[in-house]
Amino acid sequence: MVDVQVTNISKSYGQERQNAVDQVSFSVSKGELFGLIGPDGCGKTSLFRILTTLLLPDSGTASVNGFDIVKDFREIRRRVGYMPGKFSLYPDLTVEENLHFFATLFDTTIKANYDLIKDIYVQIAPFKDRRAGKLSGGMKQKLALCCALIHRPTVLFLDEPTTGVDTVSRKEFWEMLKLLKGEGITILVSTPYMDEATLCERIALIQKGTIMSIDTPDQIIHQFPKKIYAVMARNMGALLADLRSIQHISSCNAFGQYHHITFQDEDVRTPRKLIEELEYRGHVDMEITLIDPTIEDCFINLMDRHGN
């Protein structure tokens, strides 16, 4: 069963009429954990605001839970949970007051749905009398998630929940999402962190308002068109400059302690020959290894192909 259906949605702003969202279509099944992956300004937030009925699209149609986003906006608002990218709870209400407020808005009580938020809420319960504005980033995020869940939504929209949050809190957050998925809640989550893509069941890679690819993370990696190698040498800065100057290398990007490269044409001897050439140019401690591409490699490759 399809829970979210998006068909040719477009939205533009301002005088220059640049499309923030450009003919986007996708669908999300019931109970699926679906990721929108892309940098700031790629259209993720506009899409979320359209699907949560806070913004009207210029064209196209969409439905959530089978309800039309324009005609049936009231039905949708009753059923979905939305955690915006910007902290949007009441900073001068306490943790508990915020939660109570949102439960009341949806005509329910904390008690009635406590089982759903329990695992998350116990982590912030020691601070239940603290004002929300005084919480740390990680705790604000947990409270916002509790407030978005307190009416037991069928679909949960999470707009960049992990932006600016450290690795440890990010890992904890994704653990929580897995638990919620176990409850049968459909989850749409957006993130600029490419490494989080592999934690979703399916992902859409978005750039400049356009979806470049939609599939499972494994399939997207599988569709990478070339062999990709990780290269290392003692002087990584000079190596990058040299790799960029070599004609038959078609892409070259820094990835932490390695540079990832692809060749234009290659045979079995190509990697060996590259090493020889670089050693001739004075590089030492060279290493070249065939690797599996990461989602970020795929994203960069798709960006090139889309003329960025």
């Binding site: 892309g38 940098p39 700031d40 790629c42 960049e160 932006t163 600016g164 600029p192 490419m194 750039q207 800065g237 990007n253 820094a254 970020e296 994203f299 960069i300 960006m303 960025n308």
Partner: peptide, 20 residues
């Protein structure tokens, strides 16, 4: 202070070229 938060992967690398 977190200069590249939310920046796309290609521009993020160009940013680091400037740092180098």
């Amino acid at each position: 202070d977190e200069p590249t938060g939310g920046v796309d992967p290609v521009t993020r690398r160009q940013f680091w070229d400037l740092l180098y």
